[in-house]
Simulated scan of single mutants.
Amino acid sequence: MISQQQIDAFAHGFASLDRDNLARLGELYQPDVHFTDPLHELRGLTALTDYCANLYSNLSSVRFDFSQCSAIDDEQALLCWTLYYRHPRLAGGREVSVPGVSQVWFRNGKVFRHRDHYDAGALLYEHIPLLGSLIRLLKRRLT
């Protein structure tokens, strides 16, 4: 059974990651971690570390604010968050915020499965010149 303390420790550890301390991923994740988000599917700690290194190297700033974290069964938790980031070529370099939820499954105190749910358009596509305008137009027409 996972405890609230384990869930909070994971959220705090993840939120404290940056380009200079990605070796700490091994403190949070099992070596055989399976990570999925709307844009990627990765298997293994090395692949996750490489992905994070690439992500952090391309961003001017990035941070996660966790708002609610709770267990939903013996090994699974949901973590609600908002991602704040700046990329020099997206959104004119302004800060972008994207809400999301992570489903994480724990084994022996570390995460072995991590699945992120968020709007990929709000994260990326809407902030690309020309493409972003088209996506925002389509969203307005659908609502």
Rank of each mutant, 00 (worst) to 15 (best):
M1F: 04
M1C: 02
I2Q: 03
Q5L: 06
Q5C: 00
Q6M: 07
Q6Y: 04
Q6T: 10
Q6E: 15
D8C: 00
A11C: 15
H12C: 09
H12D: 14
G13P: 10
A15R: 14
A15M: 13
S16N: 15
L17D: 14
L17V: 13
L17F: 14
D18H: 15
G26C: 02
G26I: 05
E27N: 08
L28V: 05
Y29L: 12
H34T: 10
H34D: 11
F35N: 07
L39F: 13
L39A: 15
H40I: 06
H40F: 15
L42P: 11
L42E: 05
R43C: 09
G44L: 10
L45E: 14
L45K: 01
A47L: 10
T49F: 07
A53Y: 04
L55G: 03
Y56T: 05
S57W: 02
L59T: 00
S61V: 02
V62K: 02
D65Y: 05
F66D: 11
Q68I: 03
S70Q: 14
A71M: 07
I72Y: 04
D73L: 08
D73V: 09
Q76V: 13
Q76W: 12
L79T: 09
L79A: 10
W81I: 01
W81V: 03
H87G: 00
H87W: 08
R89T: 11
G92Y: 09
G93M: 06
R94Q: 13
V96F: 03
V96I: 15
S97C: 09
P99V: 08
P99C: 05
G100R: 08
S102T: 14
Q103G: 00
V104A: 11
V104E: 03
V104N: 06
F106H: 02
R107Y: 08
N108R: 07
G109M: 07
K110H: 12
K110N: 10
V111Q: 08
F112N: 15
F112Q: 12
R113V: 12
H114P: 12
R115G: 01
R115Q: 15
H117E: 07
H117G: 04
D119E: 03
G121T: 01
G121D: 12
A122Y: 06
L123C: 03
L123Y: 04
L123N: 00
Y125Q: 02
Y125C: 01
E126S: 08
I128H: 01
L130C: 03
L130N: 00
S133E: 13
S133Y: 11
L134I: 14
I135C: 02
I135Q: 03
R136S: 08
L137D: 10
K139Y: 10
K139F: 06
K139P: 06
R140W: 14
L142H: 12
